[in-house]
């Protein structure tokens, strides 16, 4: 035990661990907040759809030799609007629209990777995440964008809550449902673009879904659900990074498995309570 603690203290001395913890916690909080709104609106798979689309945007950025974050954010915003429009205007079922965008994203990604000479190390690092390789610029970008996402959630909290509970009533109440929905899509796109660095395009949707569903098992009010979701997300990132460091596991996968473990615990608590 003593040795484990001293190893963790030692880990905290490393800049790459410090950066991973800060960036990870910030992105996890964004994912957890948005996750509550998306899960309650039965749009949680939007994270999955956009993360698959992100595979294409990263491949495109690498092909152009540009920053994947800067290329991904606007393209994912467009993809999110496409999901929303397909869902609303083309009268498709929500998950069908998400599936279509996800499939197109993966296909485009494979095509672009092939054009640029096949899968390389960079593209693989975005597939499965490389949180321990977060650079200084990426950390600053994460801090700035996370602050923006959290501000949007805080400023539009009541609108987002009202629309999540009863969209029709919110519209009657003068809330601009369409604009708030697009805002939710945009903030989700930014969060996905940031999060793929953390756990990769394959696992980012887990960071959106797990903390929210875990919190929803045992929360009696909306505020409690948001706070608990953020707490679960942050705990998963911190414990996941430390566990990965101690056991020499891949960090992204360990974070997701920590989330899964917390969900199982909350599920059992709910069963016992009821």
């Amino acid at each position: 035990m003593h040795q484990m603690i001293s190893e963790l203290v030692e880990a905290l001395q490393y800049t790459f661990i410090q950066r991973a913890l800060i960036a990870g916690c910030l992105i996890a909080v964004c994912c957890s907040f948005l996750g509550v709104f998306l899960v309650l609106r039965k749009l949680s798979m939007i994270g999955d759809g956009l993360s698959h689309a992100a595979f294409a945007t990263v491949a495109f950025a690498l092909l152009l030799n540009q920053s994947p974050l800067l290329v991904s954010i606007p393209l994912l915003m467009l993809a999110s609007v496409a999901i929303y429009a397909l869902n609303k205007k083309a009268n498709l079922y929500g998950d069908a629209a998400i599936g279509m965008i996800a499939g197109t994203g993966i296909a485009l990604g494979v095509l672009l990777a092939s054009i640029s000479g096949g899968f390389n190390v960079d593209l693989f690092s975005y597939l499965f995440g490389s949180i321990l390789a977060v650079g200084k610029e990426e950390l600053y970008a994460a801090m700035f964008l996370c602050a923006a996402v959290i501000s949007v959630v805080a400023l539009f909290y009541n609108e987002l809550f009202s629309i999540s509970y009863d969209e029709e009533f919110a519209e009657v109440n003068g809330i601009e449902v369409k604009r708030v929905n697009v805002l939710l899509m945009f903030t989700t796109s930014i969060t996905i673009a940031l999060g793929i660095r953390l756990v990769g395009t394959m696992l980012i949707s887990s960071l959106i879904i797990f903390p929210a569903v875990t919190a929803l098992q045992i929360s009696s009010s909306f505020k409690k659900a948001l706070i608990l979701s953020a707490s679960v997300a942050v705990f998963s990132v911190i414990s996941g990074i430390f566990a990965a460091y101690l056991l020499d596991f891949p960090a992204g996968a360990t974070i997701v498995l920590m989330n899964a473990l917390l969900f199982i615990i909350s599920f059992i608590i709910r069963r016992i309570k009821s």
């Binding site: 539009f156 009541n158 509970y165 109440n173 003068g174 009696s220």
Partner: peptide, 21 residues
């Protein structure tokens, strides 16, 4: 849906609010 009675009733007041509500 994890909404308390007070939270749900409060939605009815949002129409009279200006940003940020």
């Amino acid at each position: 849906f994890p909404a308390s009675v007070s939270e749900v009733i409060s939605h009815g007041l949002l129409s009279e609010k200006k940003f940020p509500r």
